[in-house]
């Protein structure tokens, strides 16, 4: 028996809107630790890793580990039917072939339940080792989204370079080139507007903007985004989910042939 009650149901709506276009089908894993998902996009270039810790739920019951295969587009359709202030409860029976999403309005005057069929998904789980990154950039998530969107009007790829001067986002296309440099800025009044650059070694990596733009659909989840770079690793773009966990995107770089 699985029963997860999330008072801030809008978080789950935002998570689904962030990942449904990147991944079609995925297994949600439930354990005593929390509700998690790891899935790659169909071309095995990008990976989504979600964790919602059990402590973040108002009620969390998971009698035994359960893996539920879901079509993310269909799940997103159902969650779209929840109001932004609704409490969302996810329910499933052990060994059952469906999952129920229950939506309660804040004053309990409307209760809806949506049942969705589960599916068998043969997914490849990747072991992602803990790594030390050469550079970690923390910046406003809206600024990151703006930069990725702007650059994708000029070119298809972005070169992200971190030096002691700051972080530079560059692209080139048929019409010309673009460079955007952000310097560290910790002097702002609001911490969510800060840009913080931790650099061990200068690093420069090239990524497909199509994927970066897809990751920025998670912008409503967090005011800040963390971009972790190492020359020998995929980039990690992380959105923290308030008090509960994270949504991380991994993207393999492009390299010169």
């Amino acid at each position: 028996m699985l029963e997860l009650r999330l008072v801030q149901g809008s978080l789950l709506k935002k998570v689904m809107e962030s990942i449904k276009d990147l991944v079609n089908d995925a297994n949600f894993d439930c354990s005593a630790t929390g509700f998690s998902l790891q899935a790659m996009d169909s071309s095995h270039v990008a990976l989504v890793s979600l964790l919602l810790r059990s402590e973040g739920f108002e009620h969390y019951r998971c009698d035994r580990n359960l893996s539920m295969g879901m079509n993310l587009g269909n799940m997103a359709k159902m969650l779209k039917c929840a109001g932004n202030d609704d409490i969302v409860t996810v329910k499933a029976d052990d060994g059952g072939d469906c999952v129920t999403f229950m939506f309660e309005s804040p004053n309990q005057d409307k209760i809806a339940d949506f049942e969705m069929k589960l599916m068998d998904i043969d997914s490849e789980h990747l072991g992602i080792p803990e790594a030390e990154y050469e550079a970690i950039v923390r910046m406003p998530s809206a600024e990151f989204a703006r930069i990725c969107k702007d650059l994708s009007t000029i070119g298809d790829t972005v070169v992200i370079s971190v030096t002691k001067e700051g972080v530079k986002f560059s692209t080139r296309g048929d019409i010309g080139t673009a460079n955007i440099v952000l310097r560290q800025n910790t002097s702002v009044d609001k911490p969510e507007e800060a840009t913080i650059i931790e650099m061990e070694t200068p690093v420069s990596l090239t990524f497909a903007l199509r994927y970066m733009n897809s990751f920025t659909k998670a912008t409503p989840l967090a005011s800040q985004v963390t971009v972790s770079l190492s020359s020998e690793l995929p980039v990690v773009v992380e959105y923290k989910i308030a008090e509960m966990g994270y949504l991380r995107f991994y993207l393999a770089p492009k390299i010169e042939e």
């Binding site: 071309s43 095995h44 270039v45 072991g127 020998e232 995929p234 393999a252 390299i255 010169e256 042939e257």
Partner: peptide
């Protein structure tokens, strides 16, 4: 030209 690396070039399947 750039070659798009795959995640399996970096991470192992469990």
């Amino acid at each position: 030209a750039c070659l798009q690396k795959k995640l399996l070039d970096y991470f192992n399947a469990d």
